[in-house]
Every structure is written in structure tokens, then in C-alpha cells.
Amino acid sequence: NTKMVRFKKGDSVGLRLAGGNDVGIFVAGIQEGTSAEQEGLQEGDQILKVNTQDFRGLVREDAVLYLLEIPKGEMVTILAQSRADVYRDILACGR
């Protein structure tokens, strides 16, 4: 149940992230009207890879910085997997 989305970065990627470290990086929110939303990313999706950067094992701050450093107008390719069950557990633990 993995999906790959590809879009051109606007002012931002339009994602709020949660998790990090051993639990993985998850989409915690999506800005309305962004390409990330239009391409089908959803809250609870685990981000496995962005462009050439493996997101598994990253701390959340490093994942956020990586997304911020992608220049506006560059193509962004995100490999994600729907993991809403794991995401709910992360929220319940306050991570």
C-alpha cells in the first residue's frame, strides 16, 4: 500500500510532520490547496523517502529542515505508505 506522489514545490511543501526516530515520519496535517493535497497525501501517511533522502530513522527536525531546503519550483517526489493505525498510536503516546 505504498504510493508515490510527485509535484513542483510551491512556497512550501504543505505538510505538517509528526513522529521521528524509531517510529518514522508521518503526515500530521496537509495545507489545503497544496500540490501535496491534490496528489493524494493524507494525514497518517508515513513518509518513507523524499527525492533521494530516506526518511526512515530521521528525527522530525531533520525531516522538516530537508523539506524546507528544497528550493521553490523544484520537483518533489515522495514515497509514502498509509499507516493510519500506527499514526493513531503515535498520537496517543504524544509523540
Results as ranks from 00 to 15, higher is better:
Thr2Gly: 01
Thr2Val: 06
Thr2Arg: 06
Lys3Ala: 00
Lys3Gln: 00
Met4Cys: 12
Met4His: 08
Met4Asn: 03
Met4Glu: 12
Met4Arg: 09
Val5Met: 01
Arg6Thr: 11
Arg6His: 09
Arg6Phe: 05
Phe7Asn: 00
Phe7Asp: 07
Lys8Thr: 11
Lys8Phe: 11
Lys8Arg: 15
Lys8Ser: 06
Lys8Met: 13
Gly10Ala: 08
Gly10Ile: 06
Gly10Leu: 01
Gly10Trp: 00
Gly10Asn: 09
Gly10Tyr: 06
Asp11Ile: 05
Asp11Met: 03
Asp11Gly: 06
Asp11Thr: 07
Asp11Phe: 00
Ser12Tyr: 11
Val13Asn: 02
Val13Tyr: 09
Val13Pro: 05
Val13Ile: 14
Leu15Ser: 02
Leu15Asp: 02
Arg16Asn: 12
Ala18Asn: 08
Ala18Tyr: 09
Gly19Arg: 04
Gly20Asn: 13
Gly20Cys: 06
Asn21Gln: 15
Asn21His: 14
Asp22Ala: 08
Asp22His: 01
Asp22Arg: 10
Val23Trp: 06
Val23Leu: 11
Gly24Pro: 10
Gly24Arg: 02
Gly24Phe: 00
Ile25Val: 03
Phe26Asn: 06
Val27Leu: 04
Ala28Leu: 00
Gly29Ile: 02
Gly29His: 11
Ile30Glu: 03
Ile30Tyr: 08
Glu32Cys: 06
Glu32Gln: 12
Gly33Pro: 03
Gly33Tyr: 06
Thr34Val: 10
Ser35Arg: 12
Ala36Asp: 03
Glu37Trp: 14
Glu37His: 14
Glu37Phe: 13
Glu37Ile: 10
Gln38Leu: 15
Gln38His: 14
Gln38Val: 14
Gln38Asp: 12
Glu39Cys: 15
Glu39Asn: 13
Glu39Asp: 09
Leu41Thr: 02
Leu41Trp: 03
Gln42Glu: 14
Gln42Asn: 05
Glu43Thr: 12
Glu43Ala: 11
Gly44Asn: 02
Asp45Cys: 02
Asp45Pro: 01
Gln46Tyr: 08
Gln46Pro: 03
Ile47Ala: 01
Leu48Glu: 02
Lys49Gly: 02
Lys49His: 10
Lys49Met: 12
Val50Ser: 01
Val50Pro: 01
Gln53Tyr: 02
Gln53Ser: 06
Asp54Pro: 05
Asp54Arg: 04
Arg56Gln: 09
Arg56Tyr: 07
Gly57Phe: 05
Gly57Trp: 04
Gly57Asn: 13
Leu58Ser: 03
Leu58Glu: 06
Val59Asp: 15
Val59His: 15
Val59Leu: 13
Val59Thr: 15
Val59Arg: 15
Arg60Gln: 15
Arg60Tyr: 15
Arg60Gly: 04
Glu61Trp: 00
Glu61Leu: 04
Asp62Val: 07
Asp62Glu: 15
Ala63Trp: 04
Ala63Asp: 01
Ala63Pro: 03
Ala63Met: 00
Val64Trp: 14
Val64Tyr: 15
Leu65Asn: 15
Leu65Thr: 15
Leu65Tyr: 09
Leu65Arg: 15
Leu65Trp: 07
Tyr66Lys: 08
Tyr66Ser: 05
Leu67Ile: 00
Leu67Pro: 01
Leu67Tyr: 01
Leu68Phe: 09
Leu68Ser: 15
Leu68Glu: 15
Glu69Ser: 15
Glu69Ala: 12
Ile70Ser: 01
Ile70Pro: 00
Pro71Ile: 05
Pro71Leu: 06
Pro71Cys: 01
Pro71Met: 04
Lys72Glu: 09
Gly73Gln: 07
Gly73Ile: 02
Glu74Thr: 12
Met75Phe: 08
Met75Cys: 07
Val76Tyr: 06
Val76Gly: 00
Thr77Phe: 00
Thr77Glu: 13
Thr77Ile: 03
Ile78Leu: 04
Ile78Ser: 01
Ile78Glu: 01
Ile78His: 02
Leu79Cys: 09
Leu79Asp: 00
Ala80Glu: 06
Ala80Pro: 04
Ala80Trp: 01
Ala80Ser: 03
Ala80Tyr: 15
Ala80Ile: 03
Gln81Lys: 12
Gln81Leu: 08
Gln81Asn: 06
Ser82Ala: 11
Arg83Gln: 11
Arg83Ile: 02
Ala84Gly: 13
Ala84Val: 13
Ala84Thr: 13
Asp85Gly: 09
Asp85Lys: 10
Asp85Cys: 07
Asp85Phe: 06
Asp85Tyr: 07
Val86Thr: 11
Val86Met: 11
Tyr87Gly: 10
Tyr87His: 11
Asp89Val: 03
Asp89Met: 07
Asp89Pro: 09
Ile90Met: 14
Leu91Pro: 12
Ala92Thr: 13
Ala92Cys: 13
Cys93Pro: 14
Gly94Ile: 00
Arg95Phe: 15
